[in-house]
Each structure stands twice: as structure tokens, then as C-alpha cells.
Amino acid sequence: MAQSGLKTTGRIILALGGGYWATSASFVLFAFLMIACGLPRVEATTLSMMLAFLLYPCLILWVFGARRIGNPFVVFCALIVAGHIAPFFFSQGH
């Protein structure tokens, strides 16, 4: 019974904390991608924010729906790393 509680607690922490962090990193990626496609910065930021509001609940549902917690964990880590590295490659000296 204690093992089941630890797994549930781990999923809750990953879903809320990791999902939020992965969503914020993907927000940055969405914005850079849309700016690179020629969308003005204001519109790219607004659209990225709307997509992030849709992405966060989807990530939370995925964590609880996945059979193994390792798959969402790896994807969250990849999104977080990519979102924090992207500004160094796409900043254009600003």
C-alpha cells in the first residue's frame, strides 16, 4: 500500500511541477518557432500563450494515463532542456 502511495505522489509532483516547467519551456519554443516563421512578436507571444494553456492540462492527463512514469519524465526533461537552450541559438543578439 505504501508503494502505491509513493507512485501516486510521484505522479502528482511530476504532473504539476514538471508539467508546469515543461509547459513554460514549450511556450518559449512555440514563440521562437512562430517568430522564425514570420509572425510578429506580439501575435507569436499571444498564440504561444494560448497553446501553453492547452498543453498544460494535456501533459497532466498524460502523466496519469501513462503506464510507465518514465516516458513523460523523459519528454518533460527534453522539453525543459530545449526550452532553456533555444534562446541562446535564436536570440539574434538582442
Rank of each mutant, 00 (worst) to 15 (best):
A2Y: 00
Q3R: 11
K7Q: 07
K7G: 00
T9Q: 10
I13M: 10
L14G: 07
L14T: 05
L16R: 12
G18T: 04
Y20I: 14
Y20R: 15
A22L: 01
T23A: 11
S24T: 05
S24Q: 15
F27A: 07
L29F: 08
F30G: 09
F32L: 12
I35F: 00
I35A: 11
C37P: 02
G38E: 04
G38H: 01
P40D: 14
R41A: 11
E43I: 02
A44V: 05
T46E: 02
S48V: 05
M49F: 13
M49E: 14
M49P: 10
M50I: 14
M50K: 14
L54N: 12
L55E: 02
Y56D: 11
C58K: 14
L59P: 12
L59E: 12
L59K: 13
I60N: 07
L61N: 03
L61D: 06
F64H: 07
F64G: 01
R68S: 05
R68C: 00
R68Y: 06
I69T: 07
G70S: 13
N71D: 10
N71P: 04
P72V: 01
F73W: 00
V74R: 15
V75T: 06
C77W: 04
C77S: 14
C77E: 02
L79A: 08
I80R: 12
G83N: 03
H84C: 03
I85R: 13
A86L: 02
F89A: 15
F90G: 12
S91I: 11
Q92H: 09
G93E: 00
